[in-house]
Each structure stands twice: as C-alpha cells, then as structure tokens.
Design a protein around this nucleic acid. Sequence first.
DNA 1: AATGAATGAGATTTCATTCAT
DNA 2: CATGAATGAAATCTCATTCAT
Lengths: 209, 209, 209, 209
Amino acid sequence: MMNEPLRRSFAARRTRRIARRRDEIMVAAAQVFSEKGYANTTTKEIAHRADMAEGTLYNYFDSKRAVLLAIAEEAEAPMEAALREASALTDHDAIVDLFEEALNVSEMRLPFTRTILNEVWLDDGILEDFVIVRLRRIASALEAFVVERVEAGVFRPVEPTLVAQLVIGMCGGLILPVLRGVVEPPLPAERRALAEQIVDLLLDGIRAR
Amino acid sequence: MMNEPLRRSFAARRTRRIARRRDEIMVAAAQVFSEKGYANTTTKEIAHRADMAEGTLYNYFDSKRAVLLAIAEEAEAPMEAALREASALTDHDAIVDLFEEALNVSEMRLPFTRTILNEVWLDDGILEDFVIVRLRRIASALEAFVVERVEAGVFRPVEPTLVAQLVIGMCGGLILPVLRGVVEPPLPAERRALAEQIVDLLLDGIRAR
Amino acid sequence: MMNEPLRRSFAARRTRRIARRRDEIMVAAAQVFSEKGYANTTTKEIAHRADMAEGTLYNYFDSKRAVLLAIAEEAEAPMEAALREASALTDHDAIVDLFEEALNVSEMRLPFTRTILNEVWLDDGILEDFVIVRLRRIASALEAFVVERVEAGVFRPVEPTLVAQLVIGMCGGLILPVLRGVVEPPLPAERRALAEQIVDLLLDGIRAR
Amino acid sequence: MMNEPLRRSFAARRTRRIARRRDEIMVAAAQVFSEKGYANTTTKEIAHRADMAEGTLYNYFDSKRAVLLAIAEEAEAPMEAALREASALTDHDAIVDLFEEALNVSEMRLPFTRTILNEVWLDDGILEDFVIVRLRRIASALEAFVVERVEAGVFRPVEPTLVAQLVIGMCGGLILPVLRGVVEPPLPAERRALAEQIVDLLLDGIRAR
DNA sequence: AATGAATGAGATTTCATTCAT
DNA sequence: CATGAATGAAATCTCATTCAT
C-alpha cells in the first residue's frame, strides 16, 4: 500500500520522466528531419541520434508521423510570441519590436522550425493547422494597424491587404535563408538596427525627396 | 538502303517522338511531385499518371531522380526570362515590368516550379544549382540599380543589399502562396495594377506626408 | 508464277541468308556470354554486338536460351575431332597427336567453348548432353588403349580407369587456364614439343633410374 | 547500470548469436548458389532455404553479393590446409599426403567450394583473390620440390613448371567431377590407396620396364 | 521500460519477350 | 524482315512497425 501524496509524487516523477524522454526524441528527430526531410529520415536514424533503440521510440510515440506532429506542436510556441506582439501593434516601436522578433530564430528552435517548414510544402494538414491560421492572424493585425493609421491620416491611402502581404513577405525574405541554412542568423545586437532600417524603408520608401 | 535526306527525316522524327514522350513523363511526374513531394511519389504513380507501364519510364530516364533533374532544368526557362528583365533594370517602368513578370506563374509551369521548390528545402545540390545562382544574379541587378540611383541622388542613402533582399522577399510573399496552391494566381489583367502598387509603396513608403 | 529451278534457287539463297544471320548472332552472343556469363548477358547487349535490333534476334531464335543451345551445338565440332583422334589411338605418335589436338584451342572457337564451359557448372542438361557423353567416349578410348597395352605387357598393370581420368585431368590443367583467359594459348609451333614432353612423362614418370 | 563482466558477457553472446545467424544464411545460400549459380539464385530463395524472411538477410549482410564474398572467404580454410601441406613437401609420404588432402572434399564444405568454383569462371576478382593466389603457391611448392630432386639426381631432368601444372591438372581431374556432383567423393578409406597409386604413376610412369 | 531482431509490404530498377509500324 | 518502344513480371533492397526477451 502507498499513501496518497507519495503515490502522487511517484506519478508526477513518472510523468516528468516520460515528458523528458519524449523531448529527447523530438530534439533528435527534429535535427534529422531538418537535415534530410521527414520522408528521407529512418526511424533507425532517429533512434541512433537519440541514443536509444528503435523499439523504444514506440513506447513514447505511436508512429514516426506522431513524432513529426509533436514537433509541429512544439514549434508553435515562438510563433505565438510573435503573434502576441503583432496583436499589440500600436506605435512605431511596436512595429520595430515585431520585426526584431521575426528575425529572432532561436538557434535551439531552428531544427523544429525548419522541420515544419519542409513539410508545409507537402502536407496540407500541417500547412493549415500550423501555418495558415497563424499567418492569417498576423495579417489581420497588420491590416487593422494599417487601416487605423490610414483613417487617422498618418498613412497614405494604401491597400491594407497588399501591405500586410508585402510585410510578411519581407520578413520571409529575411528569415527563410536563415532557416534554410544559407546565411547565418543575425546576431542579437544587429537585429535592432536591422529592424529599424526595415521599418524606416517601409514607412518612407527608398525615394529621396 | 536509304537515301540521306530520308534517313535524316526518320532520325528527326524519332528524336521528336522521344522528346515528346520525355515531356509527357515530366508533366505527369511534376504533377505528382508537386502534390506529394519527390520522396513520397512512387514510380508506379508517375507511370499511371503518364498512362504507361512502369518499365516504360526507364526507356526515357535512367532513374526517378533523373526525372526530377530534368524537371528542374525545364523549370529554369521562366526564371531566365525574369533574369533578363532584372539585368535590364533602368527606369520606373522596368521595375514594374520585373514585378509583373515575377507575379506571372504560368499555370502550365506551376507544377514544375512547385516541384523544384519542394526539393529546394531538402536538397543542397538543387538549391545551389537552380535557385541560389539565379537569386544571386537578381540580387546583384537590384543592388546595382539601387547604388546607381543613390549616387545620382534619386534614392535616399539606403543599404542596397538589404533593399534587394526585401524586394525579393516581397515578391516571394506574393508568389509562394500561389505556388503552394493557397491562393489563385492573379489574372493577367490584375498583374499590372498590382505591380504598380508595389513599386509605388517601395518608392514612397506608406507614410503620408 | 515462278518456274521450279528458280524457286529452288531463291529458297536456297534464303536458307543461306538465314544461316548467315544465325551465325552472326551466335558469334556475337558467344563473345558476350564468354565474358560475362549467360545469366549476366542481356539480349540488348547481344543485339548491339551483332549490330542489329533486339527484336531481330527473335526472328532467328525462339529465345535467349535457344541461342545458348545453338552455341553449344556448334562448340561440339572441335570436340568431335578430338574424339576421332582418341578412338584411333594405336601407337606412340597417336597419343602425341591426341595431346597436341587437346592443346589446340582455336582462337575463333574460344568464346564458344568458354561459353559452354561456364554453363556446364550450372546446367545439368548441358553438362550431360555436351560434355559428359564426350568425356565418356574419350575415357573409354583411353581405357581400351591402356588395357590392350597392359595385356601385351607394354604397360605396367595400372588401373585403366584411373589413368584415363588422370590423363584427362592433365589435359584439363593445360587448357582450362587458356579457356579462362589466364594464360595465352600455346603457339602451334610449341604444341608438338609440349605434347611430346607430356607423353614422355606419362610413359616413364619423373623418377630417374 | 551493469557491471563490466556482465556487459561483456552480453556482448559476447550477441556476437555469437550474430555469427551463428550469418552462418545459417551462408550455408543456405551456398546450397542454392552451388545448385543454380549466383546469378540465377534469388534472395527470396536464399531466405526460404534459411527459413527466414527476405528482409532478415539484410540484417546480416549488406547485399546478396556480400553473402557470396563471405562464402568465398569461408571456403578458403580447407584450401589453406592444402597449402600448408604443399609447402612442407619433403619426402614420398608428404606427396601422398598432399594428394590425399586434395581428394578430401568435405561433404560439409562442398557447397561452399562449388559456389566459388562456379563464380571463378565469370568473376575476375574472385578468380584472382581466391584461386590464382593459392594455385600459384601450390605450383611454386611443387616446382621447388621437383627442382631440388632433379639437382639431387633423384628425378630425371624434367621441366618443373610443366610437371607442376600437370600434377595440379591431375588433382583437378579427380576433384572437379566430385565438386560438380557427377561422381561421389571417394571414401576416406579409399583416399590413401588412390593417392598412393597416383604418386606411383607420377614417379614411374605407366610403361613396363 | 528497453531492446533490437524479425517481418513483409512496397519501392526502384532490370530485362526477356512481344508487336505495331 | 527489321525495328525498338512497350510491357510487366520479377529481382534486389529498404524500412516502419511488432514483439519476444
């Protein structure tokens, strides 16, 4: 027999152990997925990278695909941060903050993000569940921001939808090469200056006056 | 025996027949590749889509991968057109032309382009051979254009590399959703207006003055 | 209408043309078979070596295997020559002749012979039909020759079966390396001397006395 | 955690289990290879004969060809025994021993040896690596033996190279039919007498005196 | 809970043979 | 007759998943 608090303590430890193990697997899998793509990755390789036997994977995940989906869930977190920023867009500094955040592709999360990016081109479910819903919220926040400013006479009468799409594209143009591993991520110190420049260009264009 | 012109005529017809068959295979393969990705596509499915036996594929291509590479080569053509535009950037209209061209993802070529796009996230060879070289040329043309205008006092003293990257990103933000099949390609009639708006924003920003 | 002699002449020419064509195919096939073995040879390669289309082969042979069997039939001829020699074994010179003949692996027939040799290790039918029947006749002739000499007191009371087997083995030891392409065939001029030496050793052994 | 000796014991057992399984596969494969030849044998058939699934083969060997090469390595052992005999040729009995050994084609090794023999006619690598090097050493030992005896006046002034080749051929003539499955291997009891007879003939020839 | 050998379905590729031209 | 593209059965090999230990 076991008293209740003790049992709860054991159960909690077990839960934590399981969570830790799942994490190890996801980190290992994300590394390989991001290098070779989901379809070209074998469970043997994931297991090897996670330093465990192949069969052990199946004690923690139902299938190879379940690992991918768990990684996708996990990769949500930083996107959600960007979303909170975006929805609070109020002044000049907030916009700069948003861009700075967009440029912040954490070293640690990179394999997760890149893994999802790879699959997004192939898998409609992942595209819809993990990317489109988020992009739509970002676009909405941007559009609302623009509409408000246009009505206030701060911005010219531009097309809000188009502007949102272009802004998102500009961010994409900066972070996709990083995710793909073609360029190094900007140092934290550079990010602020970069974000300032972008906002400056966005607001006033490149034409001299 | 056969006289020379006749033999040449036969040989030419044969060459054309082979080219036609290769094309059929590439069109079929690009459709499936663009839907499910190269790795998830079976030769059986390509053959079925091309309405031929599996073995017949191998009369025209050495391997499944050779089909992919042939598609990649083929997908170069429209990119090259954009490149020629880019290198002739001289005036306002030329920039609008460039954007208009970038928005022109021909329906027919779409599976080809999307196929390559899919692989670019996974395959370093394809990334380098088919995308990076081209993007570098576009970026160079854009940078030269900006530098020239800045020196002439037409543009503000902006960072040319950053501007080029942002412009490319803006184009990407417009065409990637089309390639991914999330939005319909803009009608030819809309393209000009869209391009005008983008250039307008790029030159003068969104801020009222 | 055609008169009878003319028709016969045409028919004969046709027969000859077919025979010629079959020969071309067999020569080409024997070359490839002897280099890579029957199983590793493709009909495409035979056709290429014979400078004709793959389908044409099937106008002259029912199957790839039929080509092999035809080659086997053809390879009989020189063996039959050896057999006639063997059955006429009467005196010292006849034995020398036999050995000389055994060493004579005609350059031209070499691919045919080697082709059959290859298959003999795998195919019981070919072994029985083309090799065993012949070897048995050679062995019989040798045995009869020995028995006769032993009875006449010219030879010691040796075991005729064993002697026959050893003699055949000695010949094999000399020609197998040639067939396998490990050593060059002996020049015609050398063959006589070689045969003399062998017979000398066979008759008197290597021990001094 | 596990103490060191225990871990080592597990590792050793695992190593043995793997070696045993590889052996099972090699025995099964050698049976089929020796019957139908390497090229005509399917992995399906090997697996069936080894009573396992096809995929299991590939847990132990990288490819079908790797199985063949492992068999070739294994088939070396008895040849090496013969080689040691050959290099110690000193007196009459030693020669008889050599022949007796040559006639000893162990029932168990027969498929291994026959498998290699089959491939030797087709595969230059196997010919060189597994046969020629060995035959050359045997020939050298025989030649040295003859040269020594000739100089001592025990043998007549015969050609040592030719004698070596003939002796090897005689052995071949005796064992090839066994390997091919045409005749039964001589019983151990018969082998000594057979070897004696051969040496007797070799030394004194068949001619009465 | 961990292991890793076994499995077998399925993928790519080859090739003897057929047949329309 | 000659051609060579088309065929599809079969071969080799891979790999996600299961399961006995």
